[in-house]
Amino acid sequence: MQFQFDSLAAFLAMNGHGPYVWAAYLVAVAVLVALAVTPAMRQRRMVREFSRQVRLEEARRRAAKPAAAQPLGEVEAVK
């Protein structure tokens, strides 16, 4: 088994078929890479969304705390 082309230029040209071969390989690789990367991107987006939500929840809890404490205090006062 040996390398079929004399030079890099010959490898790229492929006897005139180069553009076709390389276009096919490049597009195929691009699609495969896109397939492999999309789940990671989706996960990243989800993590971002999640941390935003956690922050929102925390802020809401902090805002709700004084209001929630009020009636409790009243109940105790009545006792």
């Binding site: 088994m1 040996q2 390398f3 079929q4 082309f5 490898f11 492929m14 006897n15 005139g16 078929h17 180069g18 076709y20 071969v21 096919a24 390989y25 195929a28």
Partner: peptide, 24 residues
Amino acid sequence: CVWGLGFAPEDAKQGNSYRIMYIH
């Protein structure tokens, strides 16, 4: 890919374009 693009022999009839077969 490396094997198919560089080391597999050229096809007698189709020339190098047959190398697309390896992904097709």
